[in-house]
Design a protein around this nucleic acid. Structure first.
Lengths: 359, 359
DNA sequence: AATTGTATCGAAAACGTTTTCGATTTTTAA
DNA sequence: TTAAAAATCGAAAACGTTTTCGATACAATT
């Protein structure tokens, strides 16, 4: 049996038993009897290497299935072809849709995506920013945790000159690009719709007091009432702080009826989950939707179309948010690479009312 | 105005205007008048550096907020502290829950997670494996696309000696660790439950013909019938190939009644989406659930508890699948690092029936 | 014949870290 | 006082790539 030639070994095609080592430029250079420099330049189409050399280098690179070592490139060029994303939680229709868009956009540009969850915890979020900076990501996307009220960690990203985009849950005070919807306007138009279809006593199941989204949706609700000559009644506003659980909507609906009986004819909820909880309560207790009470949700979850009766809701365009955010991020990464100045943008993604049977 | 001292510059605390450069070992060494070697060893508690030196190095490292450059470490140690995950799609309750578990486990071990979506496309999946290998990830988790029937890309991972775990959608032929549920058994017990509660004409809305999960759930359904003396009737099996759309369940339910009238008293569906589509059809047409027809879904989506009537379903334990998969992955990464032999495991995650109002 | 120009290549430094190994100093034992 | 042992340090190589700069060879121009 003849010993395997070095060439055969390097093709990674036989001898499956020993661990394979990735092919490097050195391997290619050695086999062709040229320098590493020339091999590198040949692959990158430098003008000072002959066409003949380029050809044989490229052919061998393909044959050996050469892939550049990303650590070496990262070390040398200080770029990782990787972006980082920090979101409060992954298991959520909105965020997984945003991520879907981000990952697709990244893939189109040959970038990879590292995803971290803050779990709505500020300290975790802060630590994860350090991890990403340390990792050398080329850009960062963040949807802030509800508890984040200090922005030094974001400022640090800017100080390191790493492009940063905030989406959905943003910090007004931080000077960077932002992508979000106009929560107040969207809520305003949903409640206006309810009013225009004859509702006069409209309750609101609102979210946590902290996040800006909750506040803005509440303000939109209030403004719509006032603009249409309906007095704002704070006893019609219910705080649902555990808004990831639809039982909160269920029990608030129950309480609403106890408090106001049939002196209420619609509910605008801060999200679809709460509306669905309420629908369940009304269904079980023979209260007709939308005859006795109308419902309008927010976010247009997949579920909204599935529930009976189907739920009217505000389409939040999660995919668009993710797509636009990453587009801007990659744009800033490109501009930074070229040394061009970066102007921070604030993009408002459009929303629309999706009318279904609950209203 | 006095010029800033070099030390002050290195602390990254002033002069926000120029881009900050990360602190390196060289900076620490220069400031202390020692060699880079000693600085490195001091931070790593090498025995051949004095306690005094260790102390001052560590103090300065903290003060300057030194973080080791991950490219350099990756290049030197050939480890990235990063794992890769390839899933068919992100926007899915099952997969986002699995990812949630994986990310949490990774974080506990100071690993980061790169997520890629194959979009159920084999060529994409294959390309992504190359990307991850190129990137130097320390381990890979994959749930295969439905269209994957060639496993060379997986073999390549094994050839490079990178730990690989397959979960949920696995390939029997690939020799690596696997984590999955027993679809056949789970389907068997769901259908057996229907039989034991008096159902005799049980339909099945099955999924695509390709994925093993669909096949196994169908086989479990069939076996349960046979074991209980109920003849298998192929006209009761409906193929729902677009199983990410609940309208498929809606139209199949309609067709089922056209075909069999009231000579059917239960449906076992390959997933909850189809069952919910069917529930919608029955609700709209005044067919009583579970009196006239019972329903049993699969996966125990969040939605199953929300719909009216609530849907009985098989709990698939997505979180456990993700947790166990990543545990095994990290175990294999550790063993590889220590040079210990790796025995591939096949872990079956338990499932249970969640009984609700639809059955 | 000397000069300039052009084409092609490679040596070497750099990115930041880890680790081996040899050098130096200090301490201990004889 | 000297030899051996222990403690402490740093030079240098290595990981794989990119890029600057100089070297060489040869052709074209005076």
């Amino acid at each position: 049996m003849s010993p395997a030639s070095p060439l055969a070994d390097l093709t990674n095609e036989n001898n499956k038993f020993k661990q394979m080592k990735p092919v490097t430029l050195k391997d290619i250079a050695k086999q062709l009897g040229i320098s590493i420099t020339t091999a590198s330049k040949a692959l990158k189409n430098y003008p000072d290497v002959s066409d003949k050399t380029k050809k044989i280098v490229k052919e061998l690179a393909v044959k050996l299935n050469y892939v550049p070592n990303s650590f070496a490139i990262g070390l040398r060029k200080q770029e990782s072809k990787t972006i980082g994303v920090i979101i409060p939680t992954m298991v959520h229709y909105f965020f997984s849709t945003v991520l879907d868009a981000i990952i697709k956009e990244a893939e189109n540009r040959n970038y990879m995506v590292i995803i971290l969850q803050s779990n709505e915890d500020y300290r975790t979020e802060k630590k994860q920013v350090d991890l990403l900076l340390n990792k050398g990501v080329d850009g960062i996307l963040i949807s802030l945790s509800n508890k984040t009220r200090d922005f030094k960690h974001l400022q640090k990203i800017m100080d390191y000159n790493i492009p940063l985009i905030l989406f959905d849950k943003i910090a007004k005070l931080v000077n960077c690009s932002k992508v979000l919807i106009d929560d107040r306007k969207a809520a305003y138009s949903a409640v206006s719709y309810l009013i225009n279809t004859g509702r006069k006593r409209i309750a609101h199941f609102r979210g946590d007091l902290n996040p800006q989204n909750s506040i803005d949706r509440f303000l939109g609700y209030k403004k719509a009432l006032e603009d249409h000559g309906i007095p704002y009644d704070s006893s019609l506003v219910y705080l649902c702080n555990n808004n990831s659980d639809f039982t909160d909507g269920y029990s608030s609906a129950k309480q609403l009826l106890l408090d106001h009986g049939d002196n209420v004819d619609a509910i605008f909820t801060v999200n679809d989950m709460l509306a669905i909880g309420a629908i369940n309560y009304f269904n079980e207790n023979g209260i007709k939707i939308p005859d006795q009470i109308a419902l309008f949700g927010f976010s247009n979850w997949f579920m909204a179309s599935v529930i009976t009766p189907s739920l009217s809701s505000v389409e939040q365009n999660a995919y668009k948010i993710g797509k636009r955010s990453s587009e801007i991020l990659f744009e800033e990464i490109e501009r930074k690479k070229k040394g061009e100045p970066i102007v921070y943008q604030k993009v408002i993604i459009d929303t629309e009312l999706v009318l279904r049977n609950s209203s």
